[in-house]
Structure formats: C-alpha cells, structure tokens
C-alpha cells in the first residue's frame, strides 16, 4: 500500500518490501513485556497477584496459625506466600489469560506472525517471570517491613526453586488452558489454587497434614515449592528432593502440553 508518501522520483513508496522478522530475543522479550503489562493492568489479576498475597501475609502474622513451625511468624509465612505468588501468577493468572486468548483466536493470529508458537510460549514464560519479580519486590518488601529476615545462605537455592516452580506451574497452566474451555479453565485453575493454598503444603508445611495425606501432598509441586522455600529461607538448607519434584512436574506438564495443547 502506498501511504500517500510519494518518493522523490514521483513513484509511490512500495509497501511490498519483503517483510523481515525482528530477531528472536527481541520478539520474545517484547511479547513478554506486552503480556506482563496486560496482566498488571488487569484488575482481577492484580488482586490475585498482589492483594491476596498481602492479605495472606498479614493474616499469617496476626494469627497463631504458624506458631508451631518456627519462633518467628513472618519468617515462616513469607516463603509460603512467595510460593503462593508463583502459583497465582504462573498457574491461575497465566492459565486464565491463555484460555481466553485461545477462545478469541489471539493465539492463532499471533502464531502467524514472526513470533510463532514457540515465541508465544517463551514470551509467556518471560511475562510470568516479570510479574513474579514485581511480586517478589512488593510482597518481599512488605515482609521485610514486617520484620522478615531470610537466611542469606538460602537465597540462591530459593531463586532456583522459584525458577523451577514457575516453570512447572506455567506448564500446568498452559496444559489446562490448552485443553479445556476458558470458563472451565477459570473454574479449575481457581479451585486448584484454593485447594493447594489450603492443603497443598504451600503455606502450611506438608509434614503437618494428617499422616495419610502427607505422602501424596509432599510430591505435589505446591508442597515441593512451599517446603523447599521454607527449608532454604528459614533454615538456609538446599532441598534437592524439592528441586527434583518440581523438575519432574515441569517436564511432565510440558510434554503433556506439547502433546495435547489445542491452539484453536
């Protein structure tokens, strides 16, 4: 199309130039930023990502729920709430957004652009990481203000766990979003979030659950992330089993998503 900009010779500016793709890192990072901004601008997502974790943190500090697990309430509460943040962003928030994008044909359209299917998935992972970083700053900052003193030796193991945890929950969110209708995705991801938050070893250690439930709960990604973060940030201990559990969930959910994800 000529954009009514005549070139000096008088011939119109040709539209057909043979389009060229932006480089892969630029495409992925731009899509990640675009989706992250979309998530942070969405009111419901913001409640899920920031407001609920802050409420949970406050409630856990004001009530004696966690008194059995450590001398200082905030030290036990903060790692669990960070695990909760990972679940809400990577699984619930991202799953719901992807489910509706699939309904509206957004995934199909974007996969016809140079972004492509793999760029779309990588971009979503970047978006989850960006939102999670914002949560770490806001929720972690609030916890520090409430007196949280994380064990320095556990910071690096915690970062690794958060990375593996967001990979596992992102893959699980994509699996749900790519196989169920968006309304069902909305219901399932919210329900699973509530169940795991309440009894999945996220906030309350799996070891405190009834003995019959403990073996099942301890292999859930929620418990691996919650207990692993507490081991790291409360005791400064690296938990290799938690890492392996999260790695296994990430691998299995990714394979399942690759196999069963429907783009339309």
């Amino acid at each position: 199309m000529t954009l009514s900009t005549p070139a000096p010779g008088g011939s119109p500016v040709r539209q057909a130039g043979g389009g060229t793709a932006a480089p892969l890192p630029a495409r992925v990072l731009r899509h990640g930023a675009y989706e992250a901004l979309g998530m942070l601008r969405n009111g419901e997502q913001l409640v899920l990502a920031i407001v609920l974790p802050l409420l949970a943190l406050t409630a856990l500090v004001l009530t004696p729920v966690l008194d059995a697990y450590g001398p200082d309430r905030i030290d036990v509460a903060a790692p669990g709430v960070l695990a909760l943040c990972t679940m809400s962003t990577a699984f619930t928030g991202q799953g719901i957004a992807t489910g509706f994008d699939r309904r509206y044909g957004v995934l199909r359209f974007l996969s016809t652009t140079p972004l492509g299917r793999s760029g779309l998935i990588l971009g979503k992972a970047v978006a989850v990481a960006v939102v999670l970083a914002v949560q770490l700053v806001v929720i972690g900052g609030a916890a520090v203000l409430m007196g949280w003193t994380p064990e320095p030796a556990g910071i690096l193991p915690a970062a690794l766990l958060l990375l593996l945890g967001s990979a596992a929950f992102t893959a699980l969110g994509l699996l749900v979003a790519g196989t169920l209708r968006p309304e069902a995705t909305l219901a399932v991801t919210n329900l699973v979030w509530i169940l795991l938050a309440a009894a999945g070893g996220v906030i309350i250690p799996a070891a405190s659950l009834p003995a019959a439930a403990e073996p099942f709960v301890s292999v859930l990604p929620s418990a691996a992330l919650g207990d692993g973060l507490r081991a790291a940030l409360v005791d400064g201990v690296f938990d290799p089993i938690a890492c392996l559990v999260l790695l296994a969930w990430a691998a299995l959910a990714s394979l399942a998503a690759i196999r069963w994800f429907k783009w339309s």
Partner: peptide
Amino acid sequence: RARVGVMLQDGGLPPSVRPLALLRHVASMY
C-alpha cells in the same frame, strides 16, 4: 511468516487491549 500477512475470519483480536497498542505490538515483531 514475516513475508506473509494473515487476517483471520474471527479476527484473533484480544478484547481487552486497545487497537493501537495491539497494532504497535504486532509491528514490533518485524
């Protein structure tokens, strides 16, 4: 894909995004 433009029958447009923001984002892939 950069040499091919696609307009889908159902549009494939995200309802909560503003039109020019979407167009700028799509443009940034090239």
